[in-house]
Amino acid sequence: MKTNIGISEKNRKEVSDILGKLLADEFVLYTKTLRAHWNLEGHDFHTKHVFFEEHYDAIKLFTDSVAERIRKIGHYAPGTLKEFLNLTNLSEKYDGDNTSHDYTVALLKDHDSIIQYIRENLSKVGEDCKDVGSEDFLTGLMQEHEEMAWMLRATVAK
């Protein structure tokens, strides 16, 4: 059945495209956080192993919520690795060591990138596309990433 939620098809498509890129970013970040959890080495292994697990569990939920938001506005979510790699603003490449410091710095950079992407698109989604529901959703998700970034930043602060 046709989606009739008071937002034009053109605007829903534009929001869906923004959300699709965000979904790809979330999935890449989820994968990179899993890598950190799996491959971490060092004196703080146990603490950081648990820390990264908490983060990838949260990011998994973010990923699902973004995909569901795309469906709520009447579009299909990208769902293949190839699509995610074509859409993401992040790099899947990791050049650091298997230390908590290197993983934390890399993951923090990705969270900051996602926060910036969301912030750059808030007014487009809410004002230009007239989708205040998605704007509100994105604001909440941005706040979640800001909290995670704060936690990561605090662990590498000097």
Score class of each variant (00 low, 15 high):
residue 2 K to I: 14
residue 3 T to I: 14
residue 5 I to Y: 08
residue 7 I to Y: 01
residue 13 K to M: 11
residue 13 K to G: 04
residue 14 E to W: 04
residue 14 E to L: 13
residue 17 D to S: 13
residue 17 D to Q: 14
residue 18 I to M: 08
residue 22 L to I: 08
residue 27 F to V: 13
residue 31 T to R: 05
residue 31 T to I: 13
residue 31 T to M: 14
residue 40 L to Y: 01
residue 41 E to W: 06
residue 43 H to P: 08
residue 46 H to C: 04
residue 47 T to E: 13
residue 47 T to F: 08
residue 47 T to P: 02
residue 49 H to P: 00
residue 49 H to S: 00
residue 49 H to L: 00
residue 51 F to V: 08
residue 52 F to E: 01
residue 58 A to Y: 05
residue 59 I to D: 00
residue 60 K to E: 12
residue 64 D to K: 09
residue 65 S to K: 15
residue 67 A to I: 00
residue 68 E to M: 00
residue 71 R to N: 12
residue 72 K to P: 03
residue 72 K to F: 10
residue 72 K to A: 15
residue 73 I to D: 09
residue 73 I to G: 07
residue 75 H to Q: 13
residue 76 Y to H: 14
residue 77 A to L: 06
residue 78 P to F: 09
residue 81 L to G: 12
residue 82 K to I: 13
residue 83 E to L: 08
residue 84 F to C: 02
residue 86 N to I: 02
residue 92 E to W: 04
residue 92 E to G: 13
residue 93 K to F: 10
residue 94 Y to R: 02
residue 95 D to R: 12
residue 95 D to W: 09
residue 96 G to E: 03
residue 96 G to F: 04
residue 97 D to R: 13
residue 97 D to M: 09
residue 98 N to Y: 12
residue 107 L to K: 00
residue 108 L to H: 05
residue 109 K to D: 13
residue 113 S to E: 11
residue 113 S to N: 13
residue 116 Q to M: 05
residue 120 E to A: 08
residue 121 N to F: 03
residue 122 L to D: 04
residue 122 L to S: 03
residue 127 E to R: 07
residue 127 E to W: 03
residue 132 V to E: 11
residue 132 V to I: 10
residue 134 S to A: 10
residue 136 D to C: 03
residue 139 T to Y: 06
residue 141 L to M: 15
residue 142 M to N: 11
residue 142 M to H: 10
residue 145 H to Q: 10
residue 148 M to H: 11
residue 150 W to S: 06
residue 152 L to Q: 05
residue 152 L to M: 15
residue 153 R to S: 15
residue 154 A to I: 05
residue 156 V to P: 09
residue 157 A to E: 14
residue 158 K to T: 11
